[in-house]
Computed example of a mutant assay.
Amino acid sequence: MLKPTTGISETVSDIVFRKIREDIISGTLAPGAKIKLEQAKERYSISVSSLREILSRLTTENLVMAEGQRGFEVSPASRKELAELADLRRVLETHAIALSFAAGNLEWEGRIVAAHHKLAAAEKKLLSGDASRTVDWVRYDWEFHQAIVSACDSATLMTTLSSVFDRFLRYHMLARSFRGQAVVDDHKLLFQLALKRDIAGAQAVVVSHIQSGVDHVLKSGRLA
């Protein structure tokens, strides 16, 4: 979610794909919203034919639904999908933790330290009431979780986890509120367990962390 560009040359379609994807995950394009091609063409400055291709790509992540001849709409949000994404994230992330902790080296530890430093700084601002740091927190939250599993040596696992993480994050953006001190404490404990290479301990924290996220979204009352 809201990941910085890699520095690799991107095509216009790549840039628009990323922008529409971010708009869906952030809630700018709301669940169930119709995507009117003529309006979207002007908004994203791209041809209708390219826009159709991009939206078709987004259907593979279940972020967009094709309606046959009627066009496209943003996939709806539901309690069922939230539960499914939480289960899938638990399986993928705990597996990746086991692989990563077993293979991690000093460079891996350095990535975790750097990622947690940025995340903790953003969370401190949020706890002080500075909601302007929400976008930073969204990016740094993923970078921290990514750093922890980055030594798993599986590009397929990382790509799949990234997609699931973003779709799970969409529900948090719908809740429109920061989870507070509890999520900060989770990240601090996960950071400590990672540096100790405590696989079982870190897996337990992640499982609890994900369930707390589900509970937070449901308690927000913003999910029908």
Rank of each mutant, 00 (worst) to 15 (best):
L55V: 13
L55S: 06
R57A: 12
R57P: 03
E61N: 13
N62M: 12
N62P: 03
L63G: 09
L63W: 12
M65L: 14
G68W: 10
G68Q: 08
G68A: 08
Q69F: 06
Q69V: 04
G71E: 06
E73P: 01
V74L: 04
S75Y: 09
P76Q: 11
S78M: 07
S78G: 13
K80I: 15
E81P: 02
E81F: 03
E81T: 15
L82S: 11
L82W: 08
A83F: 09
E84F: 08
E84D: 15
L85N: 05
L85D: 02
L88V: 07
L88A: 13
R90H: 13
R90V: 13
V91L: 11
V91N: 07
E93Y: 13
T94Q: 11
T94G: 07
H95L: 11
A96C: 06
I97P: 01
S100E: 02
F101V: 09
N105M: 09
L106N: 14
E107I: 15
G110H: 05
G110M: 07
R111C: 08
I112G: 06
I112H: 03
A114N: 12
A114D: 15
A114G: 05
H116E: 06
H117W: 03
H117M: 11
H117E: 14
K118C: 11
K118H: 12
A121M: 12
A121L: 15
A121P: 06
A122R: 00
L126M: 08
L127R: 10
L127A: 11
G129L: 10
A131I: 08
A131N: 08
A131K: 09
S132W: 10
S132A: 14
S132E: 12
R133M: 10
R133N: 04
R133Y: 12
V135T: 11
D136W: 12
R139T: 15
R139W: 06
Y140G: 05
D141T: 01
D141L: 00
D141Q: 02
Q146R: 15
A147S: 15
I148N: 03
I148Q: 07
D153K: 15
S154K: 08
L157W: 07
L157P: 05
M158S: 07
T159V: 01
T159H: 08
T159L: 07
L161I: 04
V164A: 06
F165K: 05
D166N: 14
R167E: 12
F168E: 03
F168K: 02
R170M: 11
R170C: 04
Y171V: 01
M173K: 05
L174P: 03
A175P: 00
A175M: 00
A175V: 00
R176M: 08
R176D: 06
F178E: 01
G180H: 01
